[in-house]
């Protein structure tokens, strides 16, 4: 019984900077079974229609991380994305190179920025002078301790998260979701000698620049859930020492604000988050906001049923957090 075939119209980004005047799209239409991976289709195009189509690929089983690209505008692994649902939803398959990385040619990007950010976090176990490795024996570690790594060991460094991240686009200082998930992996490792130093350092090196949009988690083909690991890092960072960065003060102030009134006191939030210099600098913006929305600068009254909110806080506090500060 021959498998059912579908028409899959492809529009593939083509560009060689310095050679081509501008990016363009090549059009190909293939007839393939709907479960065909996008990578298989692109390699078929390479082998049979256009050998100059340029992309990175290797394992074709979502473990080497080579083939991340935009499939109908979403950061995806081409090998793990099937053509059927894409055609059904969009009528065609538009392929672009990843975002936030300069194009070398077609779908191949220069990834140095991605790797540099990862290396900057010093991703290697640091010796613990108080607890040397047992001689000739593995470190004991329980299954529960292994579970604390969460999904981070699954990361294949494909950079789909980095491509999907608006904070990376907006701020060159932001380490990006993958690097932070990697950092988390070292912070929770009972063998690492410097988890506290790592947490304190990242406080001022971009941890709080995450926008909590969760697009990284949505893009991740390995379910690493980088945004959840960034959230965990923030919680651990706040517990590691008194909130010092604007970002960490903001998160603590936000929480206490709601706890005391059940509604956000924006003006108070700003005062609790920013230092005096930052406050002065933001005065013009403050006046603008007041002109448009005067209610923001008024101190709000506690909501009715405040006790309900406070009960929720009590519940949250008593349940504790999974992540303890090292």
């Amino acid at each position: 019984m021959p498998p059912e075939l579908i028409q899959a119209p492809f529009e593939v980004y083509r560009y060689e900077p310095g050679v081509d005047p501008a990016p363009r799209y090549s059009h190909f239409t293939l007839e393939l079974p709907p479960h065909t991976p996008v990578l298989t289709a692109l390699l078929k195009i390479r082998d049979e229609l256009d050998p100059s189509l340029t992309l990175r690929y290797s394992c074709r089983s979502a473990i080497c991380g080579s083939c991340a690209m935009l499939v109908n505008s979403k950061s995806r692994l081409a090998c793990k994305t099937q053509i059927g649902p894409e055609v059904a939803r969009h009528g065609k398959i538009v392929i672009d190179p990843m975002r936030n990385l300069p194009v070398l040619r077609d779908l191949v990007t220069e990834m140095n920025g991605f790797w540099d950010r990862y290396r900057r976090l010093e991703p290697a176990l640091r010796p613990n002078p108080d607890r040397p490795m047992p001689v000739g024996q593995p470190n004991p570690m329980t299954p529960e301790q292994v579970d604390r790594f969460m999904e981070t060991p699954r990361c294949i460094a494909c950079a789909a998260c980095y491509s999907a991240c608006p904070a990376v686009e907006a701020d060159p200082e932001f380490p990006g979701p993958m690097a932070l998930a990697k950092l988390y992996r070292f912070v929770v490792d009972p063998r690492d000698g410097a988890p506290r130093e790592r947490l304190l350092k990242i406080q001022s090196e971009g941890l709080w620049l995450c926008l909590r949009c969760h697009l990284c988690t949505e893009a991740c083909p390995k379910d690493v859930r980088p945004s959840e690991r960034i959230r965990d890092l923030k919680e651990m960072a706040n517990r590691a020492r008194d909130p010092s960065e604007a970002g960490s003060r903001h998160s603590v102030a936000f929480k206490e604000n709601i706890r005391s009134k059940g509604i956000l006191d924006e003006f108070k939030l700003a005062r609790q988050t920013l230092n005096p210099v930052q406050l002065l600098e933001s005065l013009p913006q403050g006046f603008k906001i007041r002109a448009k929305k005067p209610e923001v600068t008024k101190t709000p009254k506690p909501i009715r049923n405040l006790e309900e909110v406070q009960k929720l806080y009590e519940l949250l506090d008593s349940s504790g957090s999974e992540e303890e500060a090292p």
Binding site: L125, P138, P140, M141, T142, P143, Q145, P153, R191
Partner: peptide
């Protein structure tokens, strides 16, 4: 044996048995 122990010391996250040894 020594090779696996060395890789564990390098930071490999191996699966574990309930007693904390390598599964």
């Amino acid at each position: 044996g020594p090779t696996v122990v060395e890789m564990e010391h390098f930071g490999t996250i191996f699966s574990r048995a309930p007693d904390g040894s390598l599964a």
